[in-house]
Design a protein around this nucleic acid. Structure first.
Lengths: 209, 209, 209, 209
DNA sequence: TATGAATGAGTGTTCATTCAT
DNA sequence: CATGAATGAACACTCATTCAT
């Protein structure tokens, strides 16, 4: 029904909605999901009233952004699985940064406010399930290839991705890139078969907020 | 002089000051360094005016907390180096969580506000240098032991610690502990000699804010 | 552009802006330009938020009041020059009280805060120049008429006006009026030709803040 | 009784009290009688607690300053009358500035808070009566000398003095001095016999707050 | 429907005054 | 008695949200 409602929007309203979501993604990425609503409206080029007509409060806006963002991440995961030669390569590609994935981590893991909102949104939950299920397939396949150690679960992988993607406000430019690449390489090294991890694999299911 | 000034505080003022720092550590840890000042005052059991007499503005409070916290981390690092059998074990002990270290990461890396304040505080800067120098010794010793791969620098290690210690608001209790332990183990595995990392080792000096 | 911006205000916003300026004039006149903002908002019949939307801080409000007030004083000076038979009469009329002129003195001479704000506002500066230039004409004309001693300059006259108009919180009603009239008369007597003043005439230019 | 109480103070307490009054005179002169109490305590070199022990609240401090100040002005007036050759010269000397007299004007005429306090203090009232009575004598004598126009009363003179002594924050140094001298000269010119003033003389009695 | 104006609750900070040391 | 610590009320300013145009 919500989806239907969105489809029925007039063209200009639709355009406004899209611009608001895009602006909110930017602003949430920069300043987190507690950023002033007016800043988002300004960035979207609409009045604050228009923003509130489309999203009656901050929660609704976070919900809208989260849905859009999770859908994008799902698409990326599917593309990686479909286009890469091996599951391991798909995994490495995913661990490599994408700004949508980074925003997902912000919304779903870092910001308490956003977590709370997302937790109670069935639509977002569905996307999350789909993403985790896709990741699950990739993880199993990579293990079948012998490229990924057997004692990690989808949850372990997701956790690692989430740690890597947290914003790292240290150096700028190349330096930051170098740092991130090296930490990623260290983690990837750790994911290779060879040693034993403590405990049991963490499943994707355990990551539900 | 500041230290002297602090020592000369009347007994009750001293007690209040300590309670305020303690409360601020808690609250900053939970809600970050932009948390309401009144919340901190309440938690410390003092009036808002008392807080402001001791720390004339938020910056001063952040500075006070950072100094106290960095001093504690330095002590922990020295204790680990002194008490563990090998440098590698000292390193692993450090990578294992400590709430003081976690707060350091919050203040020094995650929060832009706190970073800005710390950056311009010479006292905190001294502690940071001392901590990095201590870590430097440990890293070199562990490499001499053959326990740590040669192509990582102090900066790489510090980065990894900082990633691990970023708050992970997922599950509570055992589950969170398990997750953290496993990610730590993956990273530790990655730190073992065996493969090559891209780029060059990152030094501690590169982490200066 | 500012003027344009003001013209473009929606009717209700315009009305509120005017009420705020009017209230601020009152309150500034009574309690000076450090009076509580809430008092001004209450007097204007608007919420505090509305006041701050229109004038983002106290400085902006002072600036708004000063412009409005200086414009009114300029109009009064021109009217006096145009409507009175002689320049001397115009001068006497100006020296006689006007509440706008009194507020100008408050803002431009008495209150250090307001002086500081006005000093850095080009729009107000223009009004001040225009007022002084108008006064200059009147002073010269009155001297040409032989009605005003030659050894005073525009600055002397402005100073005298400013002294006369400083709030005199002594008696109320008739009594205050009588007092002011007599002091004005004494000063006017002093302005008549006859004796010599020490020093040189003070020019209007010397009164720039 | 109050006076008695003051006399009985221990030497050190007496010294503190005097320093506080002196500091308050300075600070009131600079920032008006609403200046922070701590500033006064600091300037006096005592703790804020000591200030409050001596003067239980701001009113009491203002009262203390006003008594001290009015006493000093009375002494100055008597000295002028006694030491100058003619009453007119005594008058001119009084109109010339004295910082005590200036403070009196601040307290008794300009600041609403101080006025309110002084109004209800009998001790200050007595001083004021004495000052006005002294001034009365001078004015009458100057009129008898033929040096002062007959149609002004003590109140007129006091008003003029109060206008002249209001702080004039315009220029600094020489310029300010020049301005003040010229305005004083204009007023003195106005006080010479020659023309008629409107209304009737204002008596000193009419100046009671 | 889009806009941006109005509102007021929330938070930072200052300072007069009281009170423990 | 002197000191300076503690308190909380007061005020500036911001921002989420509602509502008139």
């Amino acid at each position: 029904m919500t989806a239907d409602a969105e489809l029925r929007l007039r063209a200009d309203a639709r355009r406004n909605r899209d611009q608001i979501i895009a602006a909110a993604k930017q602003v949430f990425g920069e300043s987190g999901p507690e950023a002033p609503m007016e800043e988002i409206a300004r960035r979207a080029g609409v009045g604050i009233g228009t923003l509130y007509r489309r999203f009656p409060d901050r929660e609704a806006l976070i919900r809208g952004v989260a849905r859009d963002n999770f859908a994008a991440v799902l698409a990326e995961a599917r593309a990686a699985a479909a286009e890469e030669q091996t599951a391991w390569q798909a995994l490495v590609r995913l661990i490599g940064r994408s700004s949508e994935l980074q925003l997902s981590v912000q919304l779903g893991l870092v910001s308490p406010v956003a977590r709370q909102v997302i937790r109670s949104d069935p639509a977002t939950a569905e996307y999350r399930e789909a993403i985790l299920s896709e990741l699950d397939d990739i993880v199993r396949a990579a293990q079948a290839e012998g490229a990924l150690r057997d004692d990690v679960g989808t949850g372990d992988v997701a956790l690692i991705v989430s740690m890597l993607l947290r914003p790292l406000p240290l150096a700028d430019g190349e330096s930051a890139t170098l740092m991130r690449e090296r930490v990623a390489a260290l983690l990837v090294d750790g994911l290779r078969p060879g040693t034993r991890l403590p405990g049991r694999p963490i499943t994707g299911a355990e990551l539900r907020p």
